[in-house]
């Protein structure tokens, strides 16, 4: 079942001016309910423009954005409720922290939803846990946190609204491997516990392969591929043609195949590669003995 659908969406910046730019060109896509869906594409391919349509932050120049089958612009006065249902974490969200304490910053969204003080407190603690934020930090000023902690606080602020769709635009950019994994695991845990749909934009093919069910590939303002991780990452030539890579492990496997080691096709995580190769070594050992 489609949680979010875009039908023939166009988005034009500066329409009617000499600086007109078509950022989205007849984009149609479908995000299945309860999945983690990754959006990949080079800079300027239209990814960020696209995600800003999902909660009505921008209005398409043409075409329809459907949430649970309903056009989000059919009742523009209800846009506020759409924003609570679709939570958008923008790039470098740590620059958007503004409250005096981390607790107050995370509580800002739930407060605007008109929830009781007790409910707000519960949600703040829950969201901090999802985002991997130490509760001891809740009474600190957000400006005294490290970069990675600020990022988590900002993500917690969106999770605290318990959105049905959580959209993250490059949530791990600039973080070290440990910080990156903490955020991506928290995102997956939020999905598992809440049943929400997650959409994530990233430049790391390795991360996408590890955490996503489906992948949508954008290039030159269009959607050029969509499907499961396996389907998308098996089309390495087409990905290369639009300036993208496959995960390092997938290219290692295809190079091993070229050298006569029959590793399974469509491998895109290290764990799968280890399993496949362990079996091959065992078989060879057996056939020899």
């Amino acid at each position: 079942m489609a949680k979010i659908e875009l039908q023939h969406v166009n988005y034009i910046y500066g329409e009617g001016t000499p600086f007109e730019v078509r950022a989205l060109d007849d984009v149609s896509l479908c995000v299945r309910e309860g999945t983690v869906t990754g959006i990949i594409g080079h800079t300027g391919s239209g990814k960020s423009t696209m995600v800003q349509l999902l909660n009505g932050l921008s209005r398409p120049s043409a075409g329809t954005v459907l949430l649970d089958g309903e056009d989000i612009w059919s009742r523009p006065k209800d846009m506020r409720s759409i924003r609570f249902r679709v939570g958008l974490v923008m790039q470098y969200p740590e620059y958007q922290l503004f409250e005096e304490t981390v607790r107050a910053d995370i509580a800002y969204g739930p407060k605007n939803m008109g929830l009781s003080a007790q409910e707000i407190e519960e949600r703040v603690l829950e969201a901090a846990a999802f985002a991997g934020l130490d509760p001891a930090l809740l009474d600190e000023s957000p400006f005294d946190l490290s970069g990675g902690q600020k990022r988590r606080a900002a993500i917690a602020g969106i999770m605290a609204m318990r959105p049905e769709v959580l959209v993250l635009d490059e949530p791990a950019a600039g973080l070290d491997p440990r910080g990156r994994d903490a955020i991506l695991r928290g995102m997956r845990e939020y999905r598992e516990k809440s049943g929400a749909t997650v959409i994530i934009v990233s430049h790391s093919m390795e991360d996408m392969a590890r955490f996503c069910d489906d992948i949508i590939v954008m290039a030159h303002s269009r959607v050029v591929m969509q499907g499961s991780c396996k389907e998308v990452f098996s089309r390495s030539d087409e990905l290369a043609a639009v300036g993208l890579d496959i995960p390092e492990i997938s290219s290692v496997c295809s190079r091993l195949r070229a050298q006569g080691i029959e590793v399974g096709e469509g491998i895109f995580t290290v764990e799968e590669a280890i399993r496949s190769l362990t079996d091959l070594f065992a078989e060879k050992e057996k056939s020899k003995g």
């Binding site: 440990r178 910080g179 390795e206 995960p247 290290v270 590669a273 362990t278």
Partner: peptide
């Protein structure tokens, strides 16, 4: 130290562990 090895090296280490 909060870091990682490249995926190709992780594969070799994983196989050694097996």
């Amino acid at each position: 130290a909060g870091l990682d090895v490249p995926q190709s090296a992780a594969l070799v280490h994983g196989l050694r562990k097996q």
